[in-house]
Every structure is written in C-alpha cells, then in structure tokens.
Design a protein around this nucleic acid. Structure first.
Lengths: 229, 229
DNA sequence: CCGCGCCGTCAAGATCGCGTCAAGGGTCGT
DNA sequence: ACGACCCTTGACGCGATCTTGACGGCGCGG
C-alpha cells in the first residue's frame, strides 16, 4: 500500500489522522514540526504528504517549497486560514490540494484517494530502485544483481536504465531516450538504442532472446516492465 | 493554451467564469445543462472541465460518470452542497477537485492551474485515451485493450486512430486521413484506408463484419464512434 | 436488368526496423 | 607505454509491417 507523511503540530489531530489512515492500510509517518518533517521526508520519501501550514519552527510554506525542490510527491495542505490568498499561494507553490480546518475526516480521506489515484495513473515518478523477480537495480549504489549474481553495468547502460526506470512500465520514445542519455542534438541514432538494449538484455534478462522486462515497442521506443504477471 | 469546458445552469456564474478564464488566455466553451455539456464534450474534448452538480436535466454526477467512461480529463466539481458525503461521492467517481459555492474566483483559478499543471507534467497529448464499452486506447502508452486482452497495433494503425480520435464521432475525410497519416502528397490512395480500416476492425471491433465503432461514410471518409448511445 | 463505383477482403512482394556481431578508436588507470 | 574497458559505427539476416494489385459483393442509377 501507499505511505503517507502527516505533518501537524497538534498531537491530537495527528493521532486522529494516523489512526484513520492506518485503518485504510496506509503506512503512516508523522512529524510535529518542519525540521522533523523534512528529515523524515529525506530518510523515507513517502507517496503523499499531508502538511499543516501552521508549524512551530519553519513555516509550512517553506516546508512545501523545500519538498518541491527535490520531489513531485502529491502534497495536501491543511490550514486554519480560509483566506483565498493563502490558498492560492500554497497551490501555486505546488500543493495539490488545500483543505481548511476544521474538515470532515471522510472528505480528507477521499482527497487522499484522489491524489494517490492520480499518482498511480501516472505510474509513479522517480524510483531509487527497481526490483523484479529476476533482477534488482539500485541506482543510488549503481548496483545490479541478476539471477543472484552481481552484474557490472557501464555508465551508458545505467543512464539508459535510469531514464526507463523513471517511469516503470511506461513507453519511452526513442527520441526521448536518445536526448536524455546522449544529450540534445541526438534523436535519430536508433542504432545506439539497439546496441545498448541488446547489451542490457544479455546482462539482465533471464532469456535475452525473449525479452520480458526490457520490451521493444516497434517504431516507438522501449519500456521497462516491472510488474510480475 | 488550454481549453476548458464550463458547465453550470446559472448564466451569470457561467459568464463570470468564462470572462475570468478567457482573461487568462484559456479557450472556454460553456454549457447550461448536462446534455449540451456531453454533446460539447464529445464534439471537442477539452483539457479540463468545470462542472456544477446542480443541473436542470441530468444530474451532474451522471455527467461526471459519462465523461469518465470515455476520458481522463481533469474535472473540477462545483456545488452548493457542503455535506462531505456529496464530496466523497464526487471525488470517488473520478472528480479531481470539489469546490463549494460560493467560492473565491482566484482560488478556483488556482485550482484550475493545479489540475492543468499536473496534466502538463504527465506529458499530456491532445488525445490521452479513448474508451468504449468494448475497447480502450491509450495513445501516450501505445496500449490497446479489446475484450479484456491486450492488442498489438502497428505504428500506422496508431497514427490512423489518432487522427480519428482527435475528433471523436466526427467524420474525417479520406483526403485528410491520408494527408495526416501518410503525409502531404497523398490524398487519393483510398485503398490504404480500406486495408487499415479492415485491420483495425479485426483487432478492435466486437464483430468486424458489422463495424460499430470504426464507421465508414461511403464516398466521404471514416468516423470513430465513441459514445455508447 | 445491367453497368459502374465504392468498399471489404486477401495475398504476395517490397521495404523497414530490430537484433546481433564485430571491428576500430578513444579514454582511463596502472 | 600498455592494457582494459567502453563507446561508436557499419554490416547482415530476419521477421514484422507496409504497399500494391486483384477479386467479389453491394448499392445506386441508367
């Protein structure tokens, strides 16, 4: 299920939120102030943030800004302030929703579902690691393990995988792959992709002749299939 | 810029909304009731819908449901009802946001920006997806599912469908199809269209012998029928 | 009733795109 | 300076896809 970070300085509200969210099978982390929130966010990036604007140390707006510098996670802002100026500011800073206190719990839960539903539709943005039944990729450590054995991947191979893994299961066009890996100015050199897709398959696929994870969409691009079906 | 469909039965509110949105360079269509809204939606699919729940003919919820059957466009629901039960229902039906009347115009505009910003981040194309009771087309992902099973379409097949899906339900002339898919310089090769229409029907239609979705207009062109009724 | 035009259908040949391999050159560390 | 590693590039075979032509059915008008 999804993980949610709840940030609010009222312990009672945090508790109530956590209980309700956990009852829906979400994994919940909590924070009572801005610093702890950012700390927790960096330690274990959640799938969604519920963020109160009135925090004792940092301004909630500042927390939102910092989060947005490094991530696109959905953020639902809570606030006692009903002035539309505050709402507009938070929304334009990158908040996905703005709920004024007091609020009905079931409405907030519905808005949580909306935000997560959308993320699921996008296919989840960036990932630090990819795990399939046959191989594992750790991008931070640049480590790949296939069939139990460590595999060495070249920089270009990592780069290509990284672009593909950014949107697991999604089609990425040849042009986009070439531009992202080799730089702008590239876009027609599909033979590069052929060579590297080939090498990656040899290193990662259980049967390189029958690609199961690194799939070709003829005439379009490639896709990294993660879901085990 | 983006196009927005505004649906509300209060002419004054519609006017105000339209003026404010147009001032921000959005293209605005309006509708005063559910039927007109669905009509307009099918004729020219917008990038976003602002939908009032209290409509004279159809229930706004019903409009939302029908829209969701064929599209993933962002929908912002407006309503005078503040009960959280109504909000939860609309949000779970696929609404992206729920704003209670009366509202501050700048807040609504901010929420419009949020919804469109997200669409842009996804890499929103002109046509995201086409859904019928029998098959689903996802153009961004190049994925087609018919009768529950995934179907493989060739690049030319996708290209042809894309042109047809740009104006769902509308007749597209043979000349236009040929020029859009095969390039300028083409326009008389109607046999190409016959071959590909045939292939698409075999892959997508429930009964290829009796085309229901990919309809021929003899001597004119083709049309992609999406609406079930 | 017959001929014409248009569409659906099929199949064969041409073409395109991908997987595959290997050679050559550049770069980096030793 | 040498070797190991990596990136680039070209060539080749094969399967999928596109193109092309032919045939039959249907509807419409003469």
């Amino acid at each position: 299920m999804s993980s949610i970070l709840v940030v609010d300085d009222e312990p009672h509200l945090v508790r109530t939120l956590a209980i309700n969210l956990r009852a829906r099978d979400y994994t919940v982390e909590t924070a009572g102030d801005g610093r702890t929130a950012l700390q927790s966010f960096h330690d274990a990036p959640p799938d969604l943030v519920v963020l109160d604007l009135g925090l004792p140390d940092l301004d909630g707006v500042e927390v939102l800004r910092r989060v947005r510098q490094v991530s696109d996670v959905p953020v639902i802002v809570l606030s006692a302030r009903t002035d539309s100026v505050d709402k507009v500011e938070a929304l334009d800073l990158g908040a996905d929703d703005y709920v004024t206190k007091p609020f009905a719990m079931d409405e907030l839960l519905a808005r949580v579902r909306v935000a997560l539903r959308r993320r699921a539709a996008d296919g989840g943005s960036s990932v630090a690691a990819v795990r399939t039944p046959h191989f594992t990729l750790d991008f931070a450590e640049r480590r790949a393990v296939a069939a139990g054995a460590e595999v060495r991947l070249t920089p270009t191979e990592w780069s290509l995988l990284e672009v593909l893994a950014r949107r697991p299961g999604h089609l990425v066009s040849q042009r986009e792959l070439l531009r992202e890996v080799w730089g702008p100015g590239y876009g027609r050199e599909s033979n590069y992709l052929r060579v590297y897709a080939n090498q990656l398959r040899r290193k990662l696929e259980p049967d390189p002749a029958v690609p199961r994870y690194l799939v070709t969409e003829p005439g379009q691009g490639y896709r990294l299939v993660v879901s085990a079906d």
